[in-house]
Simulated scan of single mutants.
Amino acid sequence: MTEQKIDKRVARTKTRLKEGLADLMTRKSIQEITVKELVEYVHINRSTFYLHYSDISNMLENVKRELIEEIAEVMESYPPEPFSEESVVFMKDVFFSLGSNRKLYRSLMGKNGDPSFVQQVEDLVGEKCLTGLKRQFPNEMNMLKYSYRFCLSGCVGLIRSWLQKDPEDSETPEEMADMSFRLIMSVIRETHPRIRR
Protein backbone atom coordinates (compact mmCIF):
# COMPACT_ATOMS: atom_id res chain seq x y z
CA MET A 1 0.00 0.00 0.00
CA THR A 2 1.38 3.44 -0.95
CA GLU A 3 2.17 6.07 1.63
CA GLN A 4 -0.43 8.38 0.07
CA LYS A 5 -3.18 5.78 0.55
CA ILE A 6 -2.12 5.26 4.17
CA ASP A 7 -2.14 9.02 4.77
CA LYS A 8 -5.65 9.31 3.30
CA ARG A 9 -6.87 6.42 5.40
CA VAL A 10 -5.39 7.97 8.56
CA ALA A 11 -6.99 11.34 7.70
CA ARG A 12 -10.39 9.67 7.18
CA THR A 13 -10.10 7.79 10.47
CA LYS A 14 -9.18 10.95 12.38
CA THR A 15 -12.05 12.84 10.75
CA ARG A 16 -14.51 10.13 11.83
CA LEU A 17 -13.15 10.24 15.37
CA LYS A 18 -13.33 14.04 15.53
CA GLU A 19 -16.88 14.14 14.20
CA GLY A 20 -17.90 11.37 16.58
CA LEU A 21 -16.38 13.24 19.51
CA ALA A 22 -18.17 16.43 18.45
CA ASP A 23 -21.50 14.56 18.29
CA LEU A 24 -21.02 13.01 21.72
CA MET A 25 -20.03 16.36 23.22
CA THR A 26 -23.42 17.77 22.26
CA ARG A 27 -24.95 15.22 24.66
CA LYS A 28 -22.51 15.02 27.54
CA SER A 29 -19.37 16.53 29.02
CA ILE A 30 -15.95 15.43 27.84
CA GLN A 31 -15.29 13.78 31.21
CA GLU A 32 -18.22 11.42 30.62
CA ILE A 33 -17.06 10.23 27.17
CA THR A 34 -15.03 7.02 27.07
CA VAL A 35 -12.82 5.58 24.35
CA LYS A 36 -15.11 2.53 24.20
CA GLU A 37 -18.16 4.72 23.63
CA LEU A 38 -16.44 6.81 20.94
CA VAL A 39 -15.05 3.89 18.92
CA GLU A 40 -18.38 2.09 19.03
CA TYR A 41 -20.12 5.26 17.90
CA VAL A 42 -17.86 5.69 14.85
CA HIS A 43 -17.44 1.94 14.20
CA ILE A 44 -13.67 1.59 14.46
CA ASN A 45 -11.45 -0.62 16.62
CA ARG A 46 -10.05 0.56 19.94
CA SER A 47 -6.59 -0.36 18.69
CA THR A 48 -7.03 2.08 15.80
CA PHE A 49 -7.91 4.85 18.24
CA TYR A 50 -4.78 4.14 20.27
CA LEU A 51 -2.61 4.43 17.16
CA HIS A 52 -3.42 8.15 17.19
CA TYR A 53 -4.32 9.14 20.76
CA SER A 54 -3.59 7.92 24.28
CA ASP A 55 -7.06 8.76 25.65
CA ILE A 56 -10.01 11.11 25.15
CA SER A 57 -8.28 14.02 26.90
CA ASN A 58 -5.23 13.61 24.67
CA MET A 59 -7.46 13.53 21.60
CA LEU A 60 -9.28 16.68 22.68
CA GLU A 61 -6.00 18.53 23.25
CA ASN A 62 -4.81 17.50 19.78
CA VAL A 63 -8.06 18.63 18.19
CA LYS A 64 -7.94 21.99 19.98
CA ARG A 65 -4.31 22.53 18.97
CA GLU A 66 -5.09 21.78 15.30
CA LEU A 67 -8.02 24.21 15.27
CA ILE A 68 -6.01 26.97 16.94
CA GLU A 69 -3.13 26.43 14.48
CA GLU A 70 -5.55 26.69 11.56
CA ILE A 71 -6.98 30.00 12.81
CA ALA A 72 -3.44 31.28 13.50
CA GLU A 73 -2.42 30.39 9.92
CA VAL A 74 -5.32 32.38 8.51
CA MET A 75 -4.43 35.36 10.66
CA GLU A 76 -0.74 35.29 9.78
CA SER A 77 -1.57 35.84 6.13
CA TYR A 78 -3.09 39.28 6.82
CA PRO A 79 -1.56 42.51 8.13
CA PRO A 80 -2.52 43.41 11.72
CA GLU A 81 -4.72 46.35 10.70
CA PRO A 82 -8.35 45.85 11.75
CA PHE A 83 -9.70 48.73 9.65
CA SER A 84 -7.79 48.09 6.43
CA GLU A 85 -9.49 47.11 3.16
CA GLU A 86 -8.50 43.49 3.83
CA SER A 87 -10.53 43.31 7.06
CA VAL A 88 -13.65 41.79 5.48
CA VAL A 89 -11.55 39.29 3.48
CA PHE A 90 -9.71 38.34 6.67
CA MET A 91 -13.01 37.84 8.53
CA LYS A 92 -14.40 35.82 5.63
CA ASP A 93 -11.43 33.45 5.79
CA VAL A 94 -11.89 33.09 9.56
CA PHE A 95 -15.58 32.24 9.06
CA PHE A 96 -14.67 29.74 6.31
CA SER A 97 -12.27 28.05 8.72
CA LEU A 98 -14.94 27.97 11.44
CA GLY A 99 -17.52 26.64 8.98
CA SER A 100 -15.29 23.87 7.65
CA ASN A 101 -14.96 22.57 11.23
CA ARG A 102 -18.46 23.57 12.31
CA LYS A 103 -19.24 20.44 14.35
CA LEU A 104 -16.05 20.69 16.37
CA TYR A 105 -16.32 24.41 17.04
CA ARG A 106 -20.01 24.09 17.91
CA SER A 107 -19.20 21.36 20.44
CA LEU A 108 -16.18 23.12 21.92
CA MET A 109 -18.07 26.41 22.25
CA GLY A 110 -21.32 24.80 23.41
CA LYS A 111 -22.68 23.96 26.86
CA ASN A 112 -20.49 20.84 27.18
CA GLY A 113 -17.55 22.57 25.57
CA ASP A 114 -14.25 23.86 26.83
CA PRO A 115 -14.18 27.47 28.14
CA SER A 116 -10.38 27.48 27.93
CA PHE A 117 -10.60 26.82 24.18
CA VAL A 118 -13.02 29.72 23.70
CA GLN A 119 -10.58 31.91 25.64
CA GLN A 120 -7.69 30.76 23.45
CA VAL A 121 -9.56 31.68 20.27
CA GLU A 122 -10.59 35.02 21.78
CA ASP A 123 -7.01 35.77 22.86
CA LEU A 124 -5.61 34.83 19.46
CA VAL A 125 -8.01 37.01 17.47
CA GLY A 126 -7.93 39.73 20.11
CA GLU A 127 -4.15 39.99 20.12
CA LYS A 128 -4.06 40.55 16.37
CA CYS A 129 -6.80 43.17 16.49
CA LEU A 130 -5.27 44.98 19.44
CA THR A 131 -1.88 45.06 17.73
CA GLY A 132 -3.52 46.62 14.67
CA LEU A 133 -5.40 49.19 16.76
CA LYS A 134 -2.21 50.21 18.57
CA ARG A 135 -0.43 50.71 15.25
CA GLN A 136 -3.25 52.67 13.64
CA PHE A 137 -4.51 54.69 16.60
CA PRO A 138 -1.76 54.91 19.25
CA ASN A 139 -3.30 58.02 20.86
CA GLU A 140 -6.81 56.57 21.09
CA MET A 141 -6.01 53.38 23.00
CA ASN A 142 -7.26 54.46 26.44
CA MET A 143 -10.83 54.42 25.14
CA LEU A 144 -10.47 52.07 22.18
CA LYS A 145 -9.49 49.17 24.43
CA TYR A 146 -13.04 49.13 25.85
CA SER A 147 -14.69 49.24 22.42
CA TYR A 148 -12.32 46.52 21.25
CA ARG A 149 -13.23 44.26 24.21
CA PHE A 150 -16.95 44.88 23.65
CA CYS A 151 -16.64 44.03 19.93
CA LEU A 152 -14.55 40.93 20.61
CA SER A 153 -17.11 39.53 23.07
CA GLY A 154 -19.89 40.36 20.63
CA CYS A 155 -18.09 38.55 17.80
CA VAL A 156 -17.69 35.43 19.93
CA GLY A 157 -21.44 35.52 20.65
CA LEU A 158 -22.16 36.01 16.96
CA ILE A 159 -19.94 33.05 16.05
CA ARG A 160 -21.63 30.83 18.65
CA SER A 161 -25.09 31.68 17.28
CA TRP A 162 -23.97 31.06 13.70
CA LEU A 163 -22.36 27.70 14.54
CA GLN A 164 -25.56 26.48 16.21
CA LYS A 165 -27.55 26.93 13.01
CA ASP A 166 -27.95 24.22 10.39
CA PRO A 167 -25.45 24.98 7.58
CA GLU A 168 -28.31 24.72 5.05
CA ASP A 169 -30.22 27.52 6.78
CA SER A 170 -27.38 29.72 7.96
CA GLU A 171 -25.66 32.73 6.48
CA THR A 172 -22.57 32.20 4.33
CA PRO A 173 -19.07 33.03 5.66
CA GLU A 174 -19.12 36.09 3.36
CA GLU A 175 -22.40 37.31 4.86
CA MET A 176 -21.15 36.74 8.40
CA ALA A 177 -17.87 38.55 7.67
CA ASP A 178 -19.72 41.52 6.20
CA MET A 179 -22.17 41.63 9.13
CA SER A 180 -19.37 41.39 11.72
CA PHE A 181 -17.35 44.15 10.07
CA ARG A 182 -20.35 46.48 9.85
CA LEU A 183 -21.27 45.89 13.50
CA ILE A 184 -17.69 46.47 14.67
CA MET A 185 -17.34 49.63 12.60
CA SER A 186 -20.65 51.03 13.85
CA VAL A 187 -19.47 50.62 17.46
CA ILE A 188 -16.06 52.15 16.74
CA ARG A 189 -17.54 55.12 14.86
CA GLU A 190 -20.21 55.78 17.48
CA THR A 191 -17.82 55.68 20.41
CA HIS A 192 -14.84 57.31 18.65
CA PRO A 193 -16.09 59.99 16.25
CA ARG A 194 -12.52 60.91 15.21
CA ILE A 195 -12.17 57.48 13.60
CA ARG A 196 -14.09 57.78 10.33
CA ARG A 197 -12.56 55.06 8.17
Rank of each mutant, 00 (worst) to 15 (best):
residue 167 P to Y: 07
residue 136 Q to V: 02
residue 173 P to H: 01
residue 96 F to R: 10
residue 56 I to S: 04
residue 108 L to C: 04
residue 30 I to H: 12
residue 56 I to E: 04
residue 117 F to S: 05
residue 81 E to N: 15
residue 37 E to M: 03
residue 60 L to W: 03
residue 109 M to Y: 04
residue 114 D to H: 07
residue 159 I to S: 12
residue 75 M to R: 02
residue 136 Q to G: 08
residue 84 S to A: 15
residue 133 L to W: 03
residue 137 F to N: 00
residue 25 M to T: 05
residue 145 K to I: 12
residue 146 Y to K: 06
residue 96 F to L: 11
residue 171 E to Y: 09
residue 48 T to A: 14
residue 53 Y to N: 07
residue 23 D to W: 08
residue 110 G to E: 04
residue 86 E to L: 13
residue 99 G to Y: 08
residue 3 E to V: 11
residue 69 E to T: 04
residue 147 S to Y: 15
residue 120 Q to H: 12
residue 87 S to A: 14
residue 28 K to R: 14
residue 49 F to Y: 10
residue 161 S to R: 13
residue 137 F to C: 00
residue 187 V to S: 09
residue 15 T to S: 08
residue 43 H to F: 09
residue 193 P to L: 02
residue 92 K to A: 06
residue 12 R to W: 08
residue 42 V to A: 01
residue 22 A to F: 04
residue 18 K to I: 11
residue 55 D to T: 07
residue 107 S to G: 04
residue 173 P to W: 02
residue 93 D to P: 06
residue 6 I to E: 13
residue 22 A to S: 09
residue 74 V to F: 00
residue 121 V to W: 04
residue 125 V to A: 00
residue 60 L to V: 09
residue 126 G to E: 02
residue 55 D to V: 11
residue 42 V to P: 01
residue 108 L to W: 06
residue 138 P to Q: 00
residue 62 N to W: 05
residue 174 E to V: 03
residue 68 I to C: 03
residue 186 S to M: 13
residue 47 S to A: 15
residue 21 L to S: 05
residue 97 S to I: 08
residue 29 S to R: 09
residue 7 D to S: 15
residue 167 P to M: 02
residue 9 R to D: 10
residue 130 L to F: 15
residue 128 K to P: 00
residue 22 A to N: 06
residue 118 V to K: 05
residue 36 K to W: 03
residue 14 K to I: 10
residue 170 S to L: 06
residue 180 S to W: 12
residue 57 S to W: 15
residue 72 A to W: 09
residue 2 T to H: 14
